[in-house]
């Protein structure tokens, strides 16, 4: 039993990271109806920026804050420059553009920082909290806490500020939002900025566990997709729940299903995505979309 609980805890730790990237995906989907295939790569790029600041001798938390600010601005810039021209275009066009962004950002990071692995400082202490035969690493606790704080801040932003209200209005109905005087374009850019910031948090959480390199987020992205699909692409809370579920499911499948083992764990998100899309396409917490031709 203890072993099982231990696995669940490990799963929650991994799931929190998936949840944070899924949260970024969902933020963009809510506002622009776009699934951003480049989200993981943007997170990786932000992490490199944070690394660059720490390498320049800044303390970790200051470097992180600077990287988050840069990411926010970068996200807005990308929305303005790259995404704006294809707004309202068919899904095919938009997906291809985000895939292009994916390739470009990945290669750009490789160009600037080379493909060699870099050590990224872990902001959390190394030990573990021991209780009742279970041990919970401080870094797992830290990851969970950070994701919780991000969720809380986003909740406050959306529910208790005027900007958040405007953003929700744009997500619900862009045309009506424009009519009541909300600057829809800026809200969309803000959404991208926020998503890039949340993604940057996720990247800095992953980096100490995986080592920093340009392809770092490739593996995480597919889990984040599974998390967002499971939770529902239009539900931030669902994305977090989905991330935790995916993390636990993946860890348990790897530990207890002999055939899967640690190498075929990547199949878990594929199976989850397929099942959710076939059985409940809107996800657990999403709204069903009514087709109108």
């Amino acid at each position: 039993m203890t072993g099982f609980l231990q696995q669940v805890i490990e799963g929650l730790g991994a799931g929190a990271i998936y949840a944070s990237l899924a949260l970024a995906l969902v933020l963009i989907y809510q506002f622009t109806g776009i699934v951003n295939f480049a989200q993981g790569e943007l997170a990786m790029f932000s992490t490199y920026i944070a690394w660059q600041f720490t390498a320049a001798g800044l303390p970790f938390w200051l470097a992180l804050a600077l990287a988050l600010a840069v990411s926010f601005a970068g996200g807005m810039l990308i929305e303005r420059v790259v995404i704006r021209p294809v707004e309202g275009a068919p899904e095919l066009t938009v997906v291809i553009v985000t895939v292009g962004l994916f390739i470009f950002v990945n290669a750009a990071a490789g160009w600037i920082w080379t493909f060699l692995i870099k050590d990224f400082p872990n902001p959390f202490p190394g030990g573990a909290l021991e209780a009742g035969g279970l041990s919970v690493g401080y870094s797992t606790l830290g990851v969970l806490a950070v994701v919780g704080v991000v969720m809380g801040l986003l909740y406050l932003l959306f529910q208790h500020t005027k900007i958040g209200l405007g953003m929700r209005a744009v997500a619900a109905n862009p045309a009506s939002a424009r009519l009541v005087g909300i600057r829809v374009g800026w809200m969309l850019a803000l959404g991208w900025g926020l998503a890039a910031t949340v993604g940057a948090v996720s990247g800095t959480l992953v980096a100490p566990l995986l080592f920093l390199e340009p392809n770092m987020m490739g593996g995480v992205l597919i889990y984040a997709f599974a998390a967002a699909t499971l939770g529902g692409f239009d539900s931030p809370g669902g994305a977090v729940a989905g991330g935790l579920i995916v993390g636990v499911a993946e860890t348990l499948a790897g530990a207890y299903v002999g055939f899967i083992g640690s190498d075929l764990k990547v199949g878990v998100p594929l199976v989850i995505i397929l099942f959710v899309l076939l059985l409940r396409p809107q996800g657990l917490f999403g709204r069903a979309v009514v087709e109108r031709a």
Partner: peptide, 16 residues
Amino acid sequence: DAAPGVIFGLLIIVVM
């Protein structure tokens, strides 16, 4: 090493 990726990525977006 990264040049092909940069070219591919840029060109995809520009072509679209």
